[in-house]
């Protein structure tokens, strides 16, 4: 069973590399059951959008 610390690391790594199928499945399940990590996942994706937006300003 994945814990939140592992999930946040995988969320971050998913921005820089292709996760393996088992990693994707385990992470997806964890995000489904954990609102904190689900929020974290959305926020990390938002940070990338914000940096790109910052470049355009």
């Amino acid at each position: 069973m994945m814990n939140c610390k592992q999930a946040t690391r995988l969320v971050s790594q998913s921005q820089d590399r292709e996760l393996s199928l088992p990693e994707r499945i385990r992470l997806r399940f964890h995000l489904f059951i954990c609102s904190g990590c689900s929020n974290y996942n959305k926020q990390i994706a938002f940070l990338r959008k914000a940096i790109h937006k910052l470049r355009e300003r």
């Binding site: 814990n3 939140c4 592992q6 954990c34 609102s35 990590c37 929020n39 959305k42 938002f46």
Partner: peptide, 13 residues
Amino acid sequence: RDHWKKTHKPSDW
């Protein structure tokens, strides 16, 4: 157990 502490759990933005 490496789960979020209540005080640090990311909120909904």
